[in-house]
Nucleic acid binder design. Structure first.
Lengths: 308, 308
DNA sequence: GAATGGATTTTGATCGCAAAAAATGCAATA
DNA sequence: TATTGCATTTTTTGCGATCAAAATCCATTC
């Protein structure tokens, strides 16, 4: 893994190929791509050279790079291999250990470093992230203490109640405006889900899709405080939900409801959309609550966690 | 300034003396104080020695320290001098510079270090804090970019609308329970305000009081997501409001409404309390909106900011 | 016997240098 | 003339050594 921007650029290019934005034979303009990603041309060039090695693009000395003929086939596979931000793995491990009760409430940095084999820099990054998400904080003096958020059984329901407070309200913001392109994209995603992706997609990706929908809806409120609050709760929620991800059946109802809400927004009936959204969230929450007793009954799935 | 725990301990002791919890002649048990603050006895001892030099406590070799006879008089003065967390000053300066438009949207870390004379560690601390609050983020590649939150004229109103979504909802949480002691303390604070503190108190402290009330109310929901979201928005709001702090008259109405809400909570009528709280927030927001045109008209108070 | 005062150990912060990564400028080229 | 390819410059990060601060332990004292 070279620099992070280089690999991000590579993933972005692959994504464009996979989505059909870039077709075989197209020339890759480094300046254009650089502008899109908000970086300079240099890492773009490196990324293209990297992709050339893997045969996704072909170098054409003096004229840059062009998309290879069998790129679309290759793009799909390579895309996934990029997803191992090594620090992220430790992050989920820590969350898991907290949920398990393996990791004590109070711990020194030294102990964390020994436990997870981290360098000082990595540890501070990790702890800063966790602190920013609100489930750990520095103690006066030494060490850190974890909050009870992750270990409280009711936490997941609580997160839904916050969402029920903010999401429907965001639709009633005075400047609410969902961009047609975004609406269209959301719509297509949901249709693809109903078209079969619900059964085939990776559980993580399925969760990601749900998040995206709700954040797109709230983002259109033009009020960044709403979006921030939602994003924040979602980050923590991700640590809580995965046990119930196995149940895919609920996604069918969900996708249908999502489409209904989009339709209402498109028609401009935001008040009704807001009510629907609230009902939708309430339904999902009830669904979760029903599963909860099972989850708490000690039938922990063990260690075949997401980090495996 | 010694270690931060030492000075914090000193401030805590001074506060206890000022509040009358500790009276002249009382012995200071180091273990007890250490437990209260969640630290070891060592920094407590250092703090006491520090206070002994200033004559607030007297050393009694072999038997520790006792509170000096004229301690209450001294405590009030010394308490204030502690309030210059140097990093905090820079933080407000940065916010001010953003509001002014002095600080560009895009800036490198190097430039920040030069501009504010910070060490590497200090700068990362500062930027992490700002990033956590959501008004700046790393750019891909180098440097940071500030979001428009602080410079958007409507931001303050937007923050109120988020509060209107979450605060009233928090009162309707199933496990809502405001501890009688907290209620009593809130009540007394508001009465003291009406008793004259509105006119005499420092503007910062006045703002702090308002925050405390609302966070106490929401905190009683037993749902940390609600409290987190509120705290977060309040931290940013602090950067936005101070221009309108000058107008003290609105605090009279506010305090009265606060008392009314407390009364409703005490009587157990949470539904009504929730409605009152919503109305209260709406009133405050309207009040702010009326002042806004004045603030935007270019009558900036200049640089006699809070960091002075 | 409980609490203190100080010595020892552990923990975390700071500083400087070296290396990596990205941005920028410039000549070459289709 | 727009675009690429490469060299140079700037910015940031990583790591090790050094230093300060806080926790812990133990002898001492009232």
């Amino acid at each position: 893994m070279k620099g992070s921007v280089v690999s991000e650029a590579a993933t972005a290019i692959l994504a464009q190929i996979a989505d059909g934005v870039l077709k075989p034979g197209d020339r890759l303009r480094s300046q254009k791509l650089a502008d899109q990603l908000g970086v300079s041309r240099f890492p773009i060039g490196q990324a293209m050279r990297m992709l050339a090695e893997r045969g996704v693009v072909v170098a054409d000395p003096g004229r840059g790079f062009t998309v290879a003929s069998d790129a679309p086939r290759l793009a799909g596979n390579l895309d996934k291999s990029q997803r191992d931000h090594l620090l992220s793995a430790v992050y989920f491990q820590v969350a898991e250990d907290r949920l398990n009760g393996t990791l004590p409430d109070r711990v020194s940095e030294q102990a964390m470093r020994d436990r997870y084999n981290l360098s000082r820099g990595q540890l501070t990054q990790l702890l800063n992230r966790i602190a920013a998400e609100g489930w750990a904080e520095r103690r006066p003096g030494y060490g850190w203490s974890f909050s009870a958020v992750l270990t409280t059984p009711a936490a997941l329901e609580q997160s839904y109640r916050l969402r029920m407070a903010i999401e429907p309200a965001s639709l009633l913001e005075p400047d609410y405006a969902l961009h047609p392109d975004v609406l269209k994209q959301c719509w297509e995603t949901e249709e693809r889900m109903l078209d079969g992706e619900i059964e085939t997609l990776d559980a993580d990706l399925l969760y990601e899709r749900g998040i995206r929908f709700h954040e797109a809806i709230v983002g259109a409120s033009q009020n960044s405080f709403f979006l921030d609050a939602l994003k924040r709760v979602n980050r923590i929620r991700r640590l809580l939900v995965y046990r119930s991800l196995a149940d895919r059946s609920r996604y069918w109802t969900q996708a249908a409801e999502h489409l209904e809400i989009l339709k209402l927004i498109e028609s401009g009936d935001l008040g009704f959309a807001s009510e629907k959204l609230r009902a939708h969230l309430e339904g999902v929450m009830k669904n979760i609550s029903n599963v909860r007793p099972l989850l708490e009954a000690g039938t922990r799935p063990g260690q075949e966690s997401r980090t495996a």
